[in-house]
């Protein structure tokens, strides 16, 4: 059976509407309707293939003869003139050296191409998966957008939950919010309690020399010691980088509190292993008693008193524990 070349081109328009037929000299003999739609001004038949297309791969192709030798392999093309839409192609030689048949498609550039050239379903062969690909791209972006919205809402909920949280995530101790809450509750109840402010000594050196991971290990270790040195219903909170507040409910006995502070400081002074190194730190503490000087009405004053005592302890040479005394503020100022 012999197929007339013209009949054959009619078939090609249907099956592969982005084809080009060239002769042995590289002159275009025919082009498919979709390809023509991309360059409606161009006089396709009779033009040179290389005047319209730039072949970027394979790089060794310099001539029409080279081009025909690429038979079967993937061609990377683009239009010479803007928009320089990228195309994929494959070439099959025509019988007895009459030239070649080249079929093309958009490849991944199809998304821009559909927009740039206002293409419709009719421009693609029904067997071409382009429409399905466009469908998928839209469906996926719609689904991704829904997921993104969900993630944003969850992120917002997470931040809100963290703001409402009472736990310090690094150490598992109570955080400043929880401490404020407990302090206010105790003051409102009118019960006696002691508030101890503990600050680590030499913690910054650990962070600076061994890094933040070591610092975190130290904080977690110290948190454990504090929980061990206190009773079940006492409050241990981490209120700042290396600052802790301990609240002893119903305990205002100075001798007992001194004992707790002493045990705590000496246990903190034990070297803390970190990998094959060890971290040496200490701690200073200041305590204020709720019943010591008139009725306490707000937690801020008590915290301030504990703070003053703490700095007095630090100034006295660290690794010490002081109770707040009126007049300490003056000593601090001098």
């Amino acid at each position: 059976m012999k197929i007339d070349i013209l009949d054959f081109l009619g078939i090609s328009d249907q099956i592969c509407p982005m084809h080009v037929v060239i002769d042995a000299e590289g002159k275009i003999l025919a082009a498919g309707p979709t390809l023509k739609k991309l360059r409606p001004e161009t006089e396709w038949v009779g033009s040179s293939f290389f005047d319209i297309f730039d072949l970027s791969r394979p790089r060794w192709v310099q001539s029409t003869a080279d081009l025909i030798k690429t038979a079967g392999s993937k061609l990377h093309l683009n239009f010479r003139e803007a928009p320089q839409t990228g195309l994929k192609g494959v070439l099959a030689p025509l019988p007895s050296g009459q030239g070649a048949f080249i079929n093309m498609s958009f490849g991944i550039s199809v998304l821009e191409a559909v927009r740039d050239y206002d293409l419709t379903s009719a421009d693609f062969s029904p067997t071409d998966l382009t429409i399905e690909m466009l469908y998928l791209v839209e469906a996926k972006s719609a689904a991704m957008e829904a997921s993104r919205q969900l993630n944003l809402r969850l992120q917002g909920a997470k931040i809100a939950a963290e703001e409402q949280a009472f736990t310090d995530t690094l150490t598992g101790l109570k955080n400043r919010r929880a401490m404020d809450h407990i302090l206010n509750r105790l003051i409102a109840s009118g019960r006696d309690f002691a508030l101890m402010h503990v600050d680590l000594d030499f913690f910054k050196e650990v962070n600076d020399t061994l890094g933040h991971a070591a610092g975190d290990t130290v904080l977690q270790h110290v948190a454990k010691l504090m929980v061990q040195c206190t009773r079940q219903n006492d409050t241990v909170a981490r209120v700042g980088g290396d600052e802790f507040v301990l609240i002893f409910e119903g305990l205002v006995d100075r001798i007992q509190l001194s004992g707790i502070a002493r045990r705590l400081i000496s246990s903190i002074e034990e070297p803390i292993p970190f990998g094959d190194r060890s971290c040496n730190i200490s701690a200073s503490a200041g305590t204020a008693l709720s019943s010591a000087f008139a009725a306490v009405e707000d937690g801020a004053l008590l915290l301030h008193q504990a703070d003053v005592a703490l700095y007095a302890a630090k100034n006295a040479g660290r690794a010490r524990h002081f109770f707040y005394q009126p007049g300490m503020e003056g000593a601090e100022a001098s």
Binding site: L111, V114, R115, D118, L119, L134, V137, E138, S141
Partner: peptide
């Protein structure tokens, strides 16, 4: 209906 109307 425009195939490429959707902004990506």
């Amino acid at each position: 209906f425009d195939l490429g109307a959707h902004s990506l």
